[in-house]
């Protein structure tokens, strides 16, 4: 891992700490209040705030996870060079697409 990946991974970790706490609070709130799917959609659909919150979360998680997976593949999978970077990008993009698709589904 070079300094660029290191900084990106630390920065996204820092960004995700409040997002994760918020996310957990939201889950507790939704289950405690017995919100139905319709209730939830009623609040998220068309909300720029929720779209931004979870889009940032998804992007941070994709970057963070892909860099972490790269380290694991490097050390335990013996992958190096171009194959290693390709694997990182592929995994990151899959996470990003899946995550953004889910965000799209709840806010649009």
């Amino acid at each position: 891992m070079n300094v660029r990946l290191y900084v990106l991974q630390r920065a996204t970790a820092l960004l995700m700490v409040p997002l994760i706490l918020g996310h957990l609070a939201i889950i507790f709130y939704a289950t405690r209040q017995g919100l139905t799917a319709a209730d939830i959609f009623g609040r998220t659909k068309g909300s720029i705030g929720w779209a931004a919150y979870y889009a940032v979360f998804v992007i941070a998680a994709s970057v963070h996870g892909a860099i972490g997976l790269r380290a694991i593949l490097r050390e335990w999978g013996g992958l190096t060079g171009r194959a290693l970077d390709l694997a990182m990008w592929a995994f990151g993009l899959v996470l990003l697409v899946l995550g953004l698709r889910a965000v799209y589904a709840v806010v649009v």
Binding site: M1, N2, V3, L5, Y6, A71
Partner: peptide, 9 residues
Amino acid sequence: VAQGGGCHA
């Protein structure tokens, strides 16, 4: 030491 095999590993 900021490269791939450097301190961040």
